[in-house]
């Protein structure tokens, strides 16, 4: 589904990613871990198409198409969803209006008619129930005045609404208490099918107790330096990142 080959990327002339290789197939859950500054968020931003990063070498293909050639919104409609580490507040834009526009843009991309208002509201209700999001939240402006936990839940709700093929969750666990973490993780698990895939980017092993990965990758100094099964996360938790640093410095 997603294939990243020898990806090099920099920001303001400073190289952050130095040859990342990663392949993800439908039905898989991948965890990307690594110390601060390893390039985790850079990687997710590049997949989503944030323009401040410059890809200097390598390629990313998604379902056989060159992802790097697509605009961020085209990537989204093609099925790439990014859960933001810091979801953006958009004062004045209601969640309903925001989601309706997004859902209909996705439908248009697939050649479908826009949803009727009633069908859309029903979809919202169903998905809210699925991810256990408080119905009040969707009556407000996008992320405005939301607590940290509410913002992250809202990301999962949007993921449920848009049904992406590939979800990249960037530090979705940061700033969450244990209950919110459970809700977020349950949401992700419920949305998992044999056809979609998830990349969970995290600093701590904690989230992986709830979202069990098939593969764990360690990103360090702009490269994936280690790949193994879910046991790697536990090993990391146990030994800390210094263990990795010692091996590769």
């Amino acid at each position: 589904m997603l294939k990243i080959e020898n990806l090099h990327a920099s920001i303001n002339g400073k190289e952050i990613l130095k040859g990342v290789n990663l392949e993800i197939n439908p039905g898989e859950v991948h965890a990307i871990m690594g110390p601060n500054g390893a390039g985790k968020s850079t990687l997710s931003s590049i997949i989503a198409g944030k323009e401040i990063y410059e890809v200097t070498a390598g390629k990313i293909t998604f379902d056989g198409i060159n992802l790097l050639e697509l605009a961020p919104e085209e990537r989204a409609c093609a099925g790439v969803f990014m859960g933001f580490q810091y979801p953006i507040e958009i004062p004045g834009v209601s969640m309903v209006n925001f989601m309706r526009t997004a859902v209909n843009e996705h439908r248009k991309y697939r050649g479908q008619e826009p949803l009727l208002a009633a069908d859309f509201l029903k979809l919202m209700r169903d998905k809210k129930a699925l991810v256990e999001i408080d119905s009040k939240l969707t009556n407000r402006s996008v992320n405005e005045g939301f607590s940290g936990g509410e913002k992250k839940k809202n990301e999962i709700f949007q993921m449920a609404m848009l049904e992406p093929k590939l979800a990249v969750l960037d530090e979705t666990d940061s700033g969450l208490d244990i209950d919110a973490l459970r809700i977020v993780a349950n949401g992700v698990n419920k949305l998992k099918t044999k056809d979609n895939a998830t990349i969970v980017i995290t600093h701590y092993q904690r989230l992986l107790d709830y979202i069990v990965p098939d593969f764990v990758h360690v990103l360090y100094q702009g490269k994936i330096v280690k790949t193994a099964g879910k046991e790697l996360a536990l090993e990391l938790e146990d030994k800390g990142y210094d263990w990795i640093k010692k091996q590769f410095d």
Binding site: P72, E73, T101, A102, E105, Q158, L162
Partner: peptide
């Protein structure tokens, strides 16, 4: 960018904002 990442086109996103 946030809106684009949700699939909303540039023009429409600008309009909404």
């Amino acid at each position: 960018f946030y809106m684009k990442a949700r699939g909303i086109g540039d023009k429409e996103a600008r309009m909404l904002l």
